[in-house]
């Protein structure tokens, strides 16, 4: 891919949205990484200034314990995003491996695996995550694991599709004729070719992970309270937002929306660029 091609992509609407997604992601990463240095207040320090509306002193207002919401949201980006990233990452090897095996071997194994994956995919993701979270209990790692179960089929699908489409291509055929083992063909020839698509799915899944984490935490099944997470902040705000304290849920929600929008625009942009229609 050269400069000219990238320019051309950026001129399309999808390209622009992808770029916007990238900008959001970079900004969020910087905020998350440097959170301790940019927060105006200690995110978990309670003060007597409870339920203050947004002002110059507290840009996003304060919560029921007088904690600065802006600082909580900045700090919360660390937990919300890393939980989602972890969830999207943990499921990746399993999904990719099964997808490669299924697509490469074909036959009955492929049929059975596809059926299982389709069934899991058809099941409501949040409810699946709720079930896992219920059994594993609340906690950051458990939340990430709960989130990850729903992603296995997405990696499976894209990998399997890719494997099927390139399996017949010449270089794989050549490698096979030269006596390469199945495992080495899978790892050396097929995996690199699917990496870009998997990366796109990874990005979209992270967006989805942010939403599931937020949903779990909102229901009280995700990140437990002392840690600032966007979903947990909204859960805390539940008792107050109908009494006129609108800011207490509005800003954490906007943060969730922005983060998942960033990952989605970015991931979908890559998917579009890679799509065969485009090539």
């Amino acid at each position: 891919m050269n400069i000219e091609e990238i320019r051309k992509i950026l001129r399309t609407n999808e390209g622009k949205l992808m770029f916007a997604g990238l900008v959001i992601l970079v900004t969020l990463s910087v905020i998350a990484i440097f959170a301790p240095y940019i927060i105006p207040y200690d995110p978990s320090k309670t003060t007597p200034d409870i339920l203050q509306p947004p002002s110059l002193k507290h840009l996003f207002g304060t919560d029921n314990l007088g904690r600065d919401l802006l600082s909580r949201i900045i700090y919360g980006s660390r937990i919300s995003i890393s939980t989602a990233l972890l969830g999207a990452l943990v499921s990746l090897p399993l999904g990719v491996l099964l997808g490669e095996i299924s697509g490469y071997l074909g036959g009955k194994i492929d049929k059975a695996l596809s059926m299982i994956m389709d069934s899991i995919y058809a099941f409501p993701s949040l409810i699946l995550a709720i079930s896992v979270a219920t059994i594993l209990g609340a906690g950051i790692l458990n939340t990430a694991l709960a989130v990850s179960t729903v992603f296995v089929p997405t990696y499976f699908r894209v990998t399997r599709g890719h494997v099927l489409s390139i399996k017949s291509k010449e270089f794989v055929e050549a490698a096979r004729l030269m006596g390469a083992s199945k495992v080495s063909i899978l790892l050396k020839d097929i995996f690199p070719n699917t990496i870009a698509s998997i990366f796109a799915i990874f990005s979209v899944n992270t967006a989805w992970g942010i939403l599931i984490e937020a949903g779990l935490s909102f229901l009280g099944l995700g990140i437990p309270p002392p840690h600032p997470s966007w979903g947990t902040d909204i859960r805390i705000g539940r008792l107050y937002y109908l009494s006129g304290y609108w800011w207490i849920i509005t800003f954490p929600g906007l943060a969730i929306l922005l983060a998942s929008l960033g990952f989605t625009f970015f991931g979908q942009g890559i998917q579009r660029i890679l799509s065969p229609e485009r090539r």
Partner: peptide, 26 residues
Amino acid sequence: NTILSTIAYTMPVFWFGMILQILFAI
């Protein structure tokens, strides 16, 4: 519309519901 539809499905549903409550009920 592309942006609107993406927002619709990348948005935290519960938060959107709460915003509607704040607007239309409060």
